[in-house]
Design a protein around this nucleic acid. Structure first.
Lengths: 226, 226
DNA sequence: GCGGGCATCCGCCGATCGTGGGATCGTTGC
DNA sequence: GCAACGATCCCACGATCGGCGGATGCCCGC
């Protein structure tokens, strides 16, 4: 099997050497380059075929997050695995947003690191246990779709609610549903009253806060089997 | 060191036996019980000290997600590690929401499974590579904070914008900022004009869609070092 | 110094919105 | 059958909102 071509981006030269040795202990891994800053990493990825970039976040010239963003933009097939000392929430999210498909900390065991490199090369992702915990925490804290949020509303009122949240005026809602302005206002009144809301602005806020706004995000609709 | 007490919840008896043998190959792990349905798992966790529940999702009587929710409610210190054949998005999210702190699939290697059990017992989390990929995908798709969303606004206008999004009326905004109703309206007009919005309802929608609403979620504010 | 952006105020107008009342019609359930 | 509920419509009132024009001071940069 063709070995996985790895680029090492890490500003401490000594650690870089150690990582190279560690990775090349696995015959399936070939460390093609090692560099000390983000800009160099981007340049090399642009010019050569690289399967996996092992990326430190704290680096001169171009920090790891930006470098990751550049690399995933220039070479979408190249996979970036972040290897860093820190596992702060913001960094994890920022790195993943930038396109990283893995995040491990430097206290990882050698075998696990090699496995992580192979995993990401394989199309999977790799999250170190500590990092996975943060990610899970984030997911859990993410906006929750409250199934009871619209419980007291009738079908018609839900329709009205949806159009309010979409930013439609009463006249527009009337035109959409073939209703008079007055009828719409009656429904709007029922919606606001039942949900205890002051006005349509609060209805919009309510919708977003309860995850019933027309978000396309998958996060907002977790289904439990009935 | 005291071994990790594990409860095995898995409806296939044969697999259950295999898992028990596999786990107990590690001296740090002790399989205290093994059961075939979710309800039994909940009962046992209630009555005994269990460190880790290895939970199948598809089970009779009480499915894994609900059982997980029950267990994390009854015994918050007990950690649930999901072990299942499927890695569908909804299941992963549902399980994590229910309180699972790990999610591995049944094609995992024995050593990795044992390590996952020890990791979650340790307070960390464990996500199998394939699952981690889905989670990362979800995180990436999550609402993005657009740093340029409020770029054209002055500091004062941002303040006004924030209060609009909080659902405050013009008079309330005036009272908060010690301004006249008229002054507030001037600012509101400037905000709507600069952002190309029709009215304050659209301003609220704009805020949520661009991730600049006052969400407490960490997801909405990824910071990149400057 | 003088324009230009900013924050602050003012009054006026028309549109929209929220709320009060009341009315008809159909379905569903006791 | 009748009560209860929901959907639909109507009118009128006052509050709020958005848009227009204009005004004053301030501070910064050319």
């Amino acid at each position: 099997m063709r070995p996985v071509r790895v680029l090492l981006a890490e500003d401490q030269a000594m650690l870089r050497g150690a990582l190279r040795a560690l990775l090349e202990a696995d015959p399936e891994i070939e460390v093609a380059f090692d560099v000390g800053d983000g800009a160099a990493a981007v340049e090399l990825v642009r010019a050569h075929r690289i399967d996996v970039v092992l990326m430190d976040l704290r680096m001169p010239r171009l920090d790891g997050v930006r470098a990751t963003a550049e690399i995933t933009r220039l070479a979408p097939t190249t996979r970036v695995l972040v290897l860093t000392t820190f596992d702060a929430d913001e960094l994890v999210v920022a790195a993943i947003r930038a396109g990283a498909c893995g995040y491990v900390t430097k206290d990882i065991r050698p075998a696990a690191l090699r496995q992580a490199v192979l995993d990401v090369a394989d199309g999977s992702a790799a999250l170190a246990p500590g990092v996975a915990e943060k990610v899970i925490g984030l997911l859990r804290r993410a906006p929750v779709a409250d199934p009871d949020a619209l419980a007291p509303l009738t079908a018609r009122e839900r329709e009205i609610f949806g159009l309010i949240v979409a930013g439609r005026s009463n006249d527009e809602i009337g035109a959409t549903l073939h209703l008079t302005r007055n009828t719409v206002k009656t429904h709007v009144r029922a919606v606001l009253g039942k949900l205890g809301l002051r006005d349509r602005v609060h209805a919009v806020i309510y919708a977003y806060e309860h995850g019933v706004a027309p978000r396309d995000g998958l996060l907002s609709s977790p289904r439990v089997s009935p």
